[in-house]
């Protein structure tokens, strides 16, 4: 049960323009999102999945889709993106801040 990390989310703002996103922007957003050591292949798999989902549906994917379609566990997702799905993966993938209680 030690897998529960108390560090939740502590990050700043999202990109406002989805098309402004580039690989360099992603690197910068990653640094803002507590991802140390740069983006790895595992990060890119999630990032491209999230971007593809947004292009198709104009909305970020639910966490269950990310985990199942990218073949990772939730713990692995949190290890890759310490700020979580929204403030981590969505943000680095260049999605705008989602609507709702976020």
């Amino acid at each position: 049960m030690e897998k529960h990390k108390q560090e939740n989310f502590h990050c700043e703002d999202f990109l406002s323009d989805f098309d402004f996103w580039t690989v360099d922007v992603a690197d910068k957003l990653a640094r803002d999102s507590d991802i140390s050591g740069g983006l790895t292949e595992s990060h890119w798999k999630v990032i491209m999945y999230v971007r593809d989902h947004f292009m198709k549906y104009e909305k970020g994917p639910a966490v269950v889709k990310v985990v199942k379609d990218c073949g990772i566990s939730f713990k692995e997702l949190c290890d890759l993106f310490p700020c979580g799905l929204v403030r981590g993966a969505y943000k680095v993938a260049g999605l705008p801040r989602p609507q709702g209680c976020i």
Binding site: H4, N8, F9, H10, C11, E12, R87
Partner: peptide, 22 residues
């Protein structure tokens, strides 16, 4: 979480359910 990031307080946020389960 938003304001902790904005003011760089370096604090974490959690809920009772997480602490009880842990």
């Amino acid at each position: 979480t938003d304001l902790i990031g904005h003011y760089k307080l370096g604090m974490d946020v959690t809920q009772l359910v997480n602490l009880v389960a842990n």
